[in-house]
Design a protein around this nucleic acid. Structure first.
Length: 260
DNA sequence: ATGGTAGAAGGTCTA
C-alpha cells in the first residue's frame, strides 16, 4: 500500500499539478494539507472519477486537510482531540481497509508553523504538538499499524536544512520544537524517509522566494511516522522532488511510503 | 536592512 502526503498550497490553484501527479504516482492513500477551501469547494469529483473515496476537513482561506483513499475507509475523525477551542482544520484520520491486506490507520496533519517564535503562535504550535503526542500514545495502545503523515513544520536535524546556522531559532528549528518532536518519535515511531536506502532523505520544501529552488535551499519538514506494526511492513519511501520544478508548483513536494 | 513570492480574500494575513 502506497501512502503519500502532500502540502498542496491550495487544492484549486494546484489542481492540474495534483491530478497529473495522482495519475503518475498512483497513491493508494493521499493526505493533503493546506487545501485552503471549505468542504463545498473541494473538487471531489476529480478524485472520485479516479476511484478515490474523498474525506475533507476544510476551512476558508487557511489550513484545511483531506484524506483520499482507493480503499474503503472507516472511523473518520476530523480535528485533533484535546482542545475544544481550536477551530483550525489541521487534522484528519481514518482507518483504511484494503480487500486483501491488513488495515492501516492513517492520520493526516498540518502542524502549525509557529512563527514568530517566541509568541502566541509558537505557544499554539507547542500545545498542538503535545496534543499530537497524546493522540500517538492513544493509537499506540491499539497495537496496530498506523502512519501519521503530513507537514510537521519541524526540521528534525541539521542534515535536513541547507543552512542550519541561519535557520536556528526559527519556529521550525529551535530547541523546544525539536524536544517536542523527539518526544513524539521516541514513543516508538519510525521516520519512513530515514528507512529508505537510496536518496531517501531529501528536502521536501523550497520557499517561493529568493530562488530557493534553483539554489536547492530546501528543508525537510514533511514526514511520515510509522507505528512499529507499520514499520515492520516497510518496503520503500521517497520524495517526488521533480514536482517542485514544474509549472505553478506547490512550495512542498509529495512524500510517500510503501508498506506490505 | 529589507524584501523577495504565492494564495485567498477582498483592500491583509499567513506562510
Amino acid at each position: 500500500m502506497k501512502i503519500a502526503t502532500f502540502n498542496v498550497n491550495s487544492i484549486n490553484a494546484r489542481l492540474p499539478r495534483i491530478t497529473e501527479w495522482f495519475d503518475k504516482a498512483k497513491p493508494d492513500v493521499a493526505l493533503l494539507q493546506e487545501i485552503k477551501c471549505v468542504d463545498e469547494k473541494f473538487p471531489v469529483s476529480e478524485f472520485e472519477d479516479r476511484g478515490y473515496n474523498v474525506e475533507v476537513h476544510g476551512q476558508k482561506t487557511y489550513n484545511g486537510v483531506a484524506l483520499l483513499s482507493k480503499f474503503p475507509v472507516d472511523d473518520v475523525m476530523r480535528g485533533l482531540p484535546g482542545d475544544k477551542e481550536d477551530d483550525q482544520a489541521r487534522y484528519i484520520e481514518a482507518l483504511i481497509m484494503p480487500d486483501n491486506e491488513a488495515p492501516v490507520r492513517v492520520g493526516g496533519l498540518y502542524l502549525p508553523n509557529g512563527n514568530p517564535a517566541p509568541g502566541p503562535k509558537y505557544d499554539y504550535k507547542l500545545k498542538w504538538m503535545k496534543r499530537l503526542k497524546k493522540r500517538a500514545e492513544t493509537l499506540l495502545d491499539y497495537e496496530e499499524a498506523f502512519v501519521l503523515a503530513g507537514d510537521y513544520n519541524v526540521i528534525p536535524q541539521a542534515e535536513d536544512v541547507h543552512d542550519p546556522a541561519g535557520w536556528w531559532g526559527d519556529a521550525l528549528y529551535r530547541e523546544e520544537t525539536l524536544v517536542a518532536f523527539r518526544e513524539i518519535v521516541n514513543l516508538g515511531l519510525t521516520d519512513a524517509l530515514r528507512q529508505a536506502d537510496s536518496g531517501g532523505i531529501r528536502y521536501t520544501f523550497w520557499d517561493y522566494q529568493r530562488g530557493a529552488w534553483e539554489k536547492d535551499h530546501g528543508i525537510r519538514i514533511d514526514h511520515l511516522l510509522m507505528s512499529p506494526q507499520a514499520a515492520d511492513r516497510f518496503k520503500d519511501a521517497g520524495v517526488d522532488r521533480a514536482e517542485r520544478g514544474k509549472e505553478k508548483p506547490s512550495d512542498h513536494v509529495p512524500v510517500w511510503v510503501e508498506i506490505n
